[in-house]
Design a protein around this nucleic acid. Structure first.
Length: 618
RNA sequence: GGGGGCGUAGCGAAGCUGGUUAUCGCGCCGGCCUGUCAAGCCGGAGAUCGCGGGUUCAAUGCCCGUCGCUCCCGCCA
């Protein structure tokens, strides 16, 4: 190998190198044999270089060239030659030159490929994962893995530059209740005891604040034993951050600086110095989700004001039921929302077919909407000039609103040619979420989601508690260590439903990119929260005792956040699945088709771990 | 736990309401070709239509079951 070791990479040579003798190592990307002359595109991770075996080359060289096939790993010795003007390939970084081979050595051969290695492969995901090493050779995967590297580097560069320490926390930790299911690791030394893999370094980073480390970050692997999704894997990476002596705005500003640096450094993009902020309530009312895609507007409107004057009984019933439920709960001291009727005006889509509208309705039904009403706004009839008369409503549910059609059209700001979509529910949240899902689908269908645009926003003022109807108790909406906003401290117990937490999510193009909060550092307040959610104090002591104990020793006020690295890189790469930016991801059943993980283990190993398996009955 | 979709040569797909030798592109094999860069041209091989059962004179197609994959809801503090 010594004499065949590369002197340059396949992405390096330019016209200035003409005449040089070089050695290249790489893979045969493509071969084009023209009888006398043949071309080999040699590829490595730096690029592709055209290698030529000339017509007057020795027969022995031609013979080797003849045997080359796709993805053979080869070494080439040769001379750099400038291509004649007419043969320059402007689409190729090295397109000005080619390397005239004087020696070709096959380092290793390659079997017939299970799928072709292309920038954007059309092979099914299962196959790509099974042969991930081949998939990773593709231009697309190479670019995304590089981007991921660049982003991780930029993160470290920025954070350390800002005075943060990167500190590793354990990946064998104590299993804690609440939250997602833990992955467990059995202990050999302690029969019946288990380590858990962390869902996040949450408790450790808070303890690091107690220890005075002030500004901490870590690019941390996290594990959650829940079903996978496009943007969810059983193991994933987050940029875990915690700071002391800060309030919410300090954390937000820090992340704005971080994102600004990462996008500038890796993509040459300048982000706004500060991101838009929306309250959770606003986000839900306007977009029907706490992770709105702000690349397009199409905000939802309240439709309740128009229900009374209409004859649409379904809407009236939804509101009446919602009001009754709200009052029944209020009598118990539980603040909940009532019903809701929401409207979405889709500009210029009055020409949508019944089928298209039904597809939108299906999106609403997935989120438990009972149905979706619609009507079309049409220009005044009987007036061919289109002037003078008022626009009116037609089709769908319009007959129920004939009495106040003009008021509705004006109130919603709708124009002739627009489509109005309506969802009502006794639970306001259902109406919001269902119609919000329709908005999201429309954004995609109408091509309003430009993958080159990055619309960040902060969602703030999340509710602290959620009413659990099944168990008739309060749960924390996020985690139990979240700081309730100061102004609610006097009324925590008397009106939990109104309490907002000092919580903040960073959203980007419809994805939750980061979630964080100011934490409780006061043991007394922590006890109150435990009590409100009915978390047994003795149990809490056993599970989180080390944290509450630590807080007794001069805990600083602190807060943090954790942007997801996979999701960030996914969005930067214009992808919709984090599998595209993870070298070796699991499939949707948490299985790695390449190495067939998870797998069974020897009885000997089980014995050592004091485990016996009880298989589920079929 | 629930719902939608998919399963046809190595890969990606077509195959309309059941009816001769199951089609196309890429790849693969062989041949031709001195300038291609998604090379081109000619020829060829390659499929128990995921698996099992049923209906039928006849099933890739219809029905039932099963397995695998995929997306979504729930779940993911």
């Amino acid at each position: 190998m010594e004499t065949l070791k590369r002197t340059v990479t396949c992405g390096a040579l330019t016209g200035a190198d003409a005449g040089k003798t070089v050695t290249l190592n790489g893979w045969v990307n493509r071969k084009r044999d023209h009888g006398g002359i043949s071309f080999i595109n040699l590829r490595d991770r730096y690029g592709t270089t055209q290698v030529v075996v000339d017509a007057d080359a020795p027969e022995s060289l031609k013979a080797i060239a003849n045997e080359l096939k796709s993805e053979y790993c080869v070494a080439v010795e040769g001379t750099v030659r400038a291509r004649p003007d007419s043969m320059v390939n402007p689409d190729m970084a090295t397109g000005q030159i080619e390397v005239v081979a004087s020696n070709l050595v096959v380092l290793t051969k390659c079997d017939v490929l299970p799928f072709q290695i292309d920038d954007e492969t059309d092979a099914k995901e299962e196959l790509r994962l099974r042969y991930r090493y081949l998939d990773l050779r593709s231009g697309g995967m190479q670019r995304r893995i590089k981007l991921r590297n660049d982003v991780a580097f930029a993160v470290r560069e920025h954070m350390i530059g800002q005075g943060f320490y990167e500190i590793e926390t354990p990946t064998f930790i104590k299993s804690t209740p609440e939250g997602a299911r833990d992955y467990l690791v059995p202990s050999r030394l302690y029969p019946g005891k288990f380590y858990a893999l962390p869902q996040s370094p949450q408790l450790y980073k808070q303890i690091l604040m107690v220890s005075g480390f002030d500004k901490y970050f870590q690019i941390a692997r996290c594990y959650r034993d829940e079903d996978a999704r496009g943007d969810r894997q059983p193991e994933f990476t987050q940029i875990d951050i915690e700071m002391s002596f800060v309030g919410r705005d300090d954390v937000l500003a820090m992340v704005e600086g971080l994102m600004g640096h990462v996008f500038r450094k890796t993509m040459g993009l300048e982000l706004p110095a500060a991101f838009k902020r929306l309250s959770y309530d606003e986000a839900l009312e306007l977009y029907g989700t706490d992770k709105p895609d702000l690349r397009f507007g199409m905000e939802m409107r309240d439709f309740e004001p128009y229900v009374a004057a209409s004859t649409f009984q379904a809407f009236k019933d939804a509101l009446a039921t919602g009001a009754a439920e709200r009052e029944a709960n209020a009598a118990k001291g539980v603040t909940i929302q009532g019903g809701g009727v929401k409207a979405l005006v889709v500009p210029g889509k009055a020409d949508y077919s019944r089928k298209q509208i039904e597809e939108l309705e299906a999106a609403a039904r997935i989120y438990r909407a009972k149905g979706m009403a619609w009507m079309k706004v049409v220009a005044a009839s009987g007036d061919s000039s289109g002037e003078g008369g008022k626009p009116s409503l037609e089709g769908g549910a319009s007959k129920f609103f004939s009495a106040n059609a003009s008021e509705i059209i004006a109130g919603l700001g709708a124009k002739p040619g627009d489509l109005i979509l309506l969802v009502a529910d006794a639970k306001r949240r259902v109406a919001n979420v269902a119609l919000g899902a329709v908005r999201t689908k429309l954004g995609r269908d109408l091509g309003l989601c430009d993958p080159k645009r990055f619309e960040f926003a902060w969602i703030v003022d999340f509710p602290m508690f959620e009413w659990n109807e099944d168990e008739q108790k309060w749960d924390t909406a996020h985690h139990m260590f979240t700081w309730p906003q100061e102004k609610y401290h006097p009324t925590l117990e008397s009106d939990p439903g109104s309490v907002k937490g000092d919580l903040y999510d960073l959203v980007l193009n419809g994805f939750e990119l980061a979630s964080g909060s100011i934490r409780i550092h006061d043991p007394a307040l922590q006890k109150r929260i435990f009590k409100i959610v009915g978390f047994d104090e003795a149990e809490g002591e056993k599970k989180f005792g080390f944290l509450t104990e630590a807080f007794k020793y001069g805990a600083p006020p602190h807060g943090g956040i954790a942007p997801g690295l996979d999701r960030l890189v996914m969005l930067m790469a214009g992808e919709t699945s984090i599998k595209e930016v993870i070298a070796f991801p699991k499939n949707s059943f948490a299985v790695s088709p390449m190495d067939d993980c998870p797998s069974e283990v020897d009885q000997k190993q089980l014995d050592e771990l004091h485990l016996s398996i009880r298989y589920p009955e079929k």
